[in-house]
Design a protein around this nucleic acid. Structure first.
Ligand SMILES: [Zn+2]
Ligand SMILES: [Zn+2]
Ligand SMILES: [Zn+2]
Ligand SMILES: [Zn+2]
Lengths: 153, 153
DNA sequence: TGAAGGATGTAATAACATAACAATTCTACA
DNA sequence: TGTAGAATTGTTATGTTATTACATCCTTCA
């Protein structure tokens, strides 16, 4: 069986993200409700890391506007399933670029010039944890300049 | 020349931290003012990561109580000199356990049971950065259980 | 049908952080 | 020593991020 890497234009990459979310939820017996799907779409379609209150603004288009707990609950759910990641140092969120579960941790390269985030699966084995320390989750964020922005200077 | 590792009781470890801060400031032509020194002391003496508003409370003991910008400015200064680190996922601060400058990044092991933080100098070379990405600073935080807490279960 | 649990709505507030400007203190140099 | 400029701190106000608590609704399944 030949495997093709899936490469999509940025503007439609979110379609595969949603499809993947459907599969993950089905596998785990969780419900991807319209609200959760909507929030995931907004995160996935956004150009770079997005803030919770930006999502909130985008969900405020009717009289029954969304309030903070609504957004945060959806974000918590999506993080629990590993479908999005929180970029700690930016207080922002991105759609997961991989199919990894929430046990594993992402390794992010964040360009401080253009805002682009490149996600890699992080190396599982830590070279030197303190004696006996059992890691359950890691936050690994590298800040700097991406190749394009380095060249543009 | 024989070198002895400096090991102090927790309750007085902050003394060396302050002495080190004096040296760093002298070397770099910066001023460790009473306020900055006080904040550093509070961070260093605190049992585990401490939050900015906890520091604020501790500085509020007179009529001329400290306000948020006062604390945040001191914290920014101390971070700039690499004397403290911000633990992003905890929105908290710890005193640096090493003498490294602010260029380098710390690698933290944070016990979610007892709150203890173990700092290591992080491995400089990243195994697989995206092509051309120039890293200027990294946030590396491992969450889990320290050896003691693993055994206590 | 009618509990039970999960998901969402709503109001209020807590927790974290910064902007803008005034006052003070320090430092360098004439 | 006097004084201009820079750095530090004080003060008020506000902006931003996140949670608590409780009500309501929806889905499942006995
Ligand atoms: Zn991911
Ligand atoms: Zn870039
Ligand atoms: Zn350090
Ligand atoms: Zn522990």
């Amino acid at each position: 069986m030949i495997m093709f890497p899936i490469v999509m234009s940025d503007s439609h990459a979110y379609a595969e993200t949603i499809a993947h979310a459907e599969r993950v939820c089905a596998d785990r017996g969780e419900r991807l409700t319209p609200l959760r799907r909507h929030v995931l779409e907004l995160v996935a379609r956004s150009d770079g890391p997005v803030k919770a209150y930006d999502l909130l603004d985008q969900l405020k288009t009717g009289p029954g506007a969304a309030k903070p707990p609504t957004v945060y609950r959806a974000l918590d759910f999506l993080m629990r399933l590993g479908l999005i990641h929180r970029v700690e140092a930016l207080k922002s969120f991105i759609a997961c670029a991989h199919g990894h579960g929430h046990e594993e941790s992402a390794e992010l390269y964040i360009c401080e010039s253009c805002g682009r985030v490149d996600e890699q699966d992080h190396p599982d084995a830590d070279p030197s944890p303190p004696s006996g320390f059992a890691v359950s989750r890691s936050v690994i964020e590298h800040y700097g300049q991406c190749g394009d922005c380095v060249n543009d200077r």
